[in-house]
Amino acid sequence: MIMQKFDYQAPADLKEACQIMANYGDKAKLLAGGTDLLIALKKNRISPSQVVALDQVDEIKGLWSDDDGIYLGARTTAAEIADSDFGAAGQALAEAAAQVGSPLVRNLATVGGNLVTAMPAADMAPPLLVMQAGVVLEKLGDNREIALDDFFVGPGEQVMLPEEIMSLIFLPELPSGSGSAFEKLGVRKALERSIVSVAALITLADDGKTIQEARIALGAVAPTPMLAATAGAGLCGKKATKKNFSAAAKTTAQEARPRGLRTSAVYSRLMVEQLTMRALTRAYAAASR
């Protein structure tokens, strides 16, 4: 394990970081938690001339909120998210963060890194998708916000330009009566890449029984984390019943696009159905609280 040589840059703020990225573009790699980057460097999968550490860039750390919603600094660690209270509507995110890697990994790994590396099994992507997260991408003198649903392109690929830095993840305020849940199936209890992961979010109407809105997102069963849009839409206006959840879970399984790499596609779809059922059931329980 020997890394190629590189210059180590530690910008003091976002502007300086953007300046460095503008200068070096794809010759530079951003270092947040480093749990993916260091492995790639050690295995010589990448050989950047610049490694740009973001640990002094305080603007992109931590959580805060206003009337519009919650702002998550991209540099916020999985451990911090796992320990945060997002209410019933956001519990899927805390649950997913709590299952990233191991305690040691969670202390380093960041939500931004989890998204930017664009792995199909990224734990925090499905809950952020059902919460309709947007991501803010910064470059020198400019920024853009795009929906997370439009962010992923393929395994390891997303829409960011080489000079861009993900600064924030924005979670719009969810209506009251919303609840979410995250389900992950792996073989081990830690350090485990999902076989299948599912996040579900349900918003109940005032009667507490009619589903006003529902979204379901999947991990590890398509080239990217994905929303099961048909299944989610199909639940809207329906009653929150086992039967309806079961039909939605079946639809979700059909929407999944497993590639049959680590488990057979048949098994993956079966698990999508199972985990969706469980996630919907728990999301409903959370929404009813």
Binding site: S102, V187, R188, K189, A190, L191, E192, R193
Partner: peptide, 11 residues
């Protein structure tokens, strides 16, 4: 040892 999984303390 990421691909080849041995039992963790939690297992």
């Amino acid at each position: 040892l990421g691909e080849y999984r041995i039992a963790t303390a939690l297992d």
